[in-house]
Design a protein around this nucleic acid. Structure first.
Lengths: 237, 237, 237, 237
DNA sequence: AATGAATGAGGATTCATTCAT
DNA sequence: GATGAATGAATCCTCATTCAT
């Protein structure tokens, strides 16, 4: 039943189902009723079941296709000139893509729920492993993480981006996650907009000044602390 | 409705319901049927509804209790001598506790779904904010993250620990997440057990040797690379 | 949703559901459990929901069909030769039909509860209005009533017939209701069977005579009163 | 259990329950949950059940009290000077009172649902019968109706008033119902506000004139009909 | 006697899956 | 092969009635 059908129209149906399922699962995850998918695909529910024995199998099929592409990309990057770029770029891109896709998210999820079919998981892990080791070998990734850690981090980054999507900083959590992987000497620090409602040093709420520049500190002693601290690590604003 | 009943048996039932709900939600999150919770508690469904007007209210009640404790701890740590320990210890502990608890996970989740009741969310954020700012002030946390970032990271760490639970390294993902928050100069690097099935350098699968010490590299050239690299960063094993 | 299905068996099922719903609603009104309707129709509850999105929609569908017929009849009578017959005949017939039908009763009910769908209510009112005005124009209906009064009276008549169904005089209450609409000069007075257990004049219970013709009055003075009254209005027996 | 309790506080509770039940049933009829009544009465549900074996029995008790009063009034009117006023006044008053009382409505309802307990129904009927016969005897009520007809009409009038409550004409339907009972020669005709959107004669919708007095007829021929008709029965506007 | 907690049978609705057409 | 109709178990929630305290 999972094998591709012979007739042209049947093959077309299968494609349409996969496409509809992709969209539906991407938008709503496992929750979307199968009838909705069938309707989107313009076929009957029975046709879906002819092609995929269960709803879960359909889900698997959908994400397998996606993961296949991702694996392909990972393999393509396996020989890239810059192992660091290859690795971090890959991670970032995967997250970005999955960020808006409930289905891929669930598939690559930390618990890999609903994604152990067809050995795609192993292939993904293996391909990622190559990128990771090359990056580690190049000194771009700390050596004490393994591919499972990275997989988990990937899942976590997707999760964080999905949940804490702040219009202002897309990709911010992913960037943090990547920083967790870097050796200590290299780091991409980015700074967000400053919080003008609390003291930067001790978090005391600030009384907003009616006029003039907003205050940054609650007191002179906090301003002094900030001053001292700035001298100690001058690179971060 | 949420007020504790007077009679001893009723109070006992209420406790049993909360306990059963705690376990059930911890194990399966929002998904568990309310009837299951009632059965676990040894009461009828009606009794659950007498105590909590909706399933959601029960969920809230369960997590509110948990979050309350966490907030209390955060507040207690607000005056700790070592801001760094206070902050990282708190984060680690929260994750550890929530790790096995789907419900708390969902409550503190990145999207805070199903946890806006009773202002507990704000209290949690505020208490965490204090710990964060003190740690930043002490130079123990990079200055370009805010409390929302930390909340997201917390949620992500819980998620990662839940999903990628590897018997061997509990808390490992949390440790990584914490590292993402540290200024570059300080880092807790830990190393896991060596993977004996792949070349350490190029990730080529290794043929296990029938006897003797297991191989670490696939070839002489990889061994050479490893040697060169070791000289460059001598601190990591 | 409400569109008729193509397949023969489905169409048959839909009909059976409508029929079962018609009977069930007729007998018990909105109260019948939907599962009962499904069982009567010999289908699963899901099948009912496939055809009608909610129980209420099913109710509407059932009564809409009935009201449609009634509206059709009203329109057909719009050009009748005798406006009085058309109007009173229509009213009588509507009540007769709805009399045994809780559902139609509820639909045409005084408060029109649960019958504002599909504009059928307005159509009914409009068609009735035409009959009413023609009858008023012909002097067969008192001029100080409007179509809303007639609607109310219709509902009331149905209600009365339903409740006080006396095997002996079906339509009696409707006849009374119609009389309320007639100009004073015309009236259809009908008389029911005489009550042989009370004095006709003062309602004192009568001791039934063991033999002979049953008594009509409790005393000679009442007989006398009746005699006098009979002379005053000789047409009613 | 229906028997009045001995202790003073118990008697007080019983009264409070009856009062609360009266209000609750009046407002919502049979639908109101018993727990609500208990709460309104400030007692536990168990106390309600101690006094009344079922919810239905409570309902009966409540309406029995009300009907008792109505019966008392009917009896008091039995010797009134003017039998016509006594009868029509009574009918009107009963309807007016019940109009805002779901419970009494249901009790006196056409189908007498939920009101066959304690012989109150018979007493009501008997008392009404006396008023009716006296009015008939006085020539104020057509002779071809019996007390069951009047009961039905009462129920119907309540029903109509409840459903078609038009702010503008409270009691209008009751007035109509009374007219149905009058001998042909006497009648209370009232006229409502004229409908300015349809032709008075043929009910054709009227195009509202932008200025000037609103039109009453759709055409000259209808105006002519109206003119002829006015001459025939000059008393009604 | 009073309380109000507990019960549990429904009731409306959804949806994965099967199967007649 | 395709269709979409049918199924019926599952889910949340209500409320009359019973019973332990």
């Amino acid at each position: 039943m999972g094998s591709p059908p012979q007739r042209a129209d049947a093959r077309r149906n299968r494609e349409r189902i996969l496409q509809a399922a992709f969209e539906a699962f991407a938008a709503e995850g496992h929750l979307v009723p199968l009838d909705d998918i069938a309707r989107r695909a313009g076929v009957g529910a029975g046709t879906v079941y002819r092609n995929f024995p269960t709803k879960e199998a359909l889900f698997q099929a959908v994400v397998t296709v996606r993961i296949e592409r991702i694996v392909d990309e990972a393999r393509a990057l396996g020989g890239a000139a810059d192992p660091a770029d290859a690795f971090y770029g890959f991670v970032t891109q995967v997250v970005e893509r999955a960020m808006f896709n409930h289905a891929v998210c669930e598939a690559l999820a930390a618990d890999m729920r609903g994604f152990d079919a067809s050995g795609m998981d192993e292939q993904f892990t293996a391909a990622l492993d190559v990128l990771l080791r090359r990056a580690q070998n190049a000194g771009a990734v700390r050596p004490d993480v393994d591919v499972q850690d990275v997989r988990a981090l990937l899942a976590g980054a997707m999760y964080m981006e999905r949940g804490h999507r702040r219009g202002d900083r897309p990709g911010h959590m992913t960037s943090l996650a990547c920083d967790a992987l870097r050796p200590t000497t290299k780091r991409n620090e980015t700074s967000g907009p400053r919080d003008e409602t609390h003291c930067e040093i001790c978090a005391t709420p600030l009384t907003p000044a009616a006029t003039g520049r907003p205050a940054r500190f609650c007191s002179a002693s906090c301003r002094q602390k900030a001053h001292r601290r700035k001298k100690a690590s001058p690179k971060t604003g």
